[in-house]
Structures are given as C-alpha cells and as structure tokens.
C-alpha cells in the first residue's frame, strides 16, 4: 500500500471518531435515518430470526420430550412389572394369613408346602409339593388348607411328595355329618363332587349339612371340614343312603397347602 493511500485510509478511519466527538448529534441522526429507511427489512428479519430461534427451541424441546418419554416409558414398564410382583406378593400374604391358625396349633405341627406340579392325567387327581422326607413329610400325612381337607400324602421322596386329592378315584375317607352325626365313607370319583356312601337308612342328613372327618381309620384327625351335602339319595341296593358332597377346597386353584404332622407325645 502506498503511503499516500495509507494516510488517506487513516484519515477516513479516524474521521467518524472525530465527527462523533465534534458533532455529537450527527451520528444519531445518521443512525435514526438508516433505521427508518431499513425498518421493514429489520422487522422482517426479526420475524425470521424469531421463527428460526423458535424452531430451534421447539426442536430442542421436542428432542428432550422424546428422550424423556422413552425414559419414562421404560420406567413405567419397570413399575408395571413391580406392581404385578407386589400384587402377587399381596395375594400370597393374604393366602398365607389363613394358614396361621393351623401353624399355631399345639397338638400338631404344620409344614407349609407349595404345589409345584399337578398331574396332567385325566384319571389321577394328584399333585406334587415341594417338601419331602427331608422336611419331615411322610406317607399318609393329612394335607389341608384353611378351607378344608385336601387329601393325604401318597408317597414322599427326598425333597418332594405326591399328594392324593379327595377327588381322586382311589381316595377313601371316613366322614360324618356335623349336624346329624351320621357316619359314611367318602369316595372320590375323579369328578368335582364326592360321593358319601354307606349312610344308614335312618340317617337324618339333609342338603346343606357340613361333612367333617370322623377321625376313624387313623389317617385324618377328627373334625376337619370336608364339604357340604349337595344331594341325598338311596343306594341302588336299597340298603343304604348316599350323598353327593361338594368339597370346600377348590382343587383347581390350589397353590399352597399344609402337611399336618402329629407331634410326638411329651413335646
């Protein structure tokens, strides 16, 4: 750059500074005039900039919301699983609460067991529990629920046992009618209802009477509720009456049971 040009440029660069010092109002006049001239363009640019900034902010907000939504969805799934688990726990606690009176009995000790397998055979009404000989479970032990009698232990392995339900065709139980004290033999038929046979012809049982264990036979203690009389009739041989009994226990919904072990004398 030639010195003359440099001096000229320098003068031009300093000139506005001098003007603003000497003529104080002049720069403002120039600025006001410029702003007035370009006012529509400034307004349009402000609008455009606001739109751009707004769009950016909205996009940012949308991305944040999207990310937050995903996180909350994942958290919701976790909580739904947790709620289902807690509901299950709650139901379990409610069910187990009914077992407490039996567990606190002094004459017998009760062993809590869960049903881990149910026979899929049409002919058998049995189930496998998660307690066996190792836990003190033995053949012939009564198996009950708070609702009533379930059946007895058919066989016991080391850590599991097979329970024969009252409804099984091989099940035989000595029972009596709680109200009239009539005795009979309760047999499973592989159906929902049980058949009480060998009832004396003079028996006064009626529909709705409660059937409990009689304590005879040495397997079941006396007085365990079994079911209610649904129907009374005469046997085909004409020598006895029979009754259809609906068990108190809903065998299809069984989840937990108690194995009732008699405590040794003196303990």
């Amino acid at each position: 750059m030639r010195p003359k040009a440099l001096v000229l440029f320098l003068v031009l660069a300093v000139l506005p500074l001098v003007i603003s010092k000497v003529a104080v109002g002049f720069p403002e006049t120039v600025r006001v005039f410029s702003y007035q001239t370009f006012k529509p363009v400034f307004q349009a640019s402000d609008f455009f900039s606001d739109q751009c900034t707004g769009l950016f902010a909205q996009t940012k907000s949308f991305l944040f919301t999207y990310r937050q939504n995903k996180e909350l969805q994942a958290r919701l799934n976790e909580l739904e699983i947790e709620v289902a688990r807690l509901k299950e726990e709650n139901k379990k606690i409610q069910r187990l609460g009914k077992f407490l009176p039996y567990l606190e009995q002094k004459s017998r000790s009760s062993l809590y067991a869960q049903i881990i397998f149910r026979s899929i055979s049409f002919w058998e009404q049995t189930a496998v529990i998660d307690k066996g000989a190792r836990h003190g479970v033995g053949k012939g032990m009564p198996v009950i629920t708070p609702e009533g009698l379930v059946g007895k232990v058919g066989s016991a392995g080391n850590s599991s046992a097979n329970v024969i339900f009252l409804t099984d065709a091989s099940s035989r139980t000595s029972v009596l009618v709680q109200e009239s004290r009539d005795i009979g033999l309760l047999c499973g038929e592989g159906k929902k209802l049980l058949r009480m046979s060998y009832i004396d012809l003079s028996a006064t049982l009626k529909i709705g009477d409660t059937i409990v264990t009689s304590g005879m036979g040495g397997v079941y203690p006396k007085g365990i509720p079994v079911g209610k009389v649904e129907m009374v009739g005469k046997d085909p041989d004409g020598l006895h009456l029979y009754a259809q009994v609906k068990p108190f226990v809903a065998f299809s919904k069984l989840e937990e049971v108690l194995c009732w072990v008699k405590k040794p004398e003196g303990r």
Binding site: L6, F9, P16, S20, R31, S34, Y35
Partner: peptide, 28 residues
C-alpha cells in the same frame, strides 16, 4: 483495509455503540 473501512462504517451506522469505533478498529 479499504474493505474493512467500509464494513466498519456500515457496522457503525447500524449499531448503537460509540460512533467511529467500529470503523477504526476494523481498519487497524
């Protein structure tokens, strides 16, 4: 420097700072 002078002046006109400061600083 001439371009800087022009651009600095434009900025001075369209800003509210001390008039002439942009022109000189750009030029320097």
């Amino acid at each position: 420097p001439l371009v800087a002078l022009l651009l600095g002046f434009v900025r001075d006109v369209f800003s509210s700072g001390f008039f002439g400061a942009e022109t000189f600083s750009y030029f320097a």
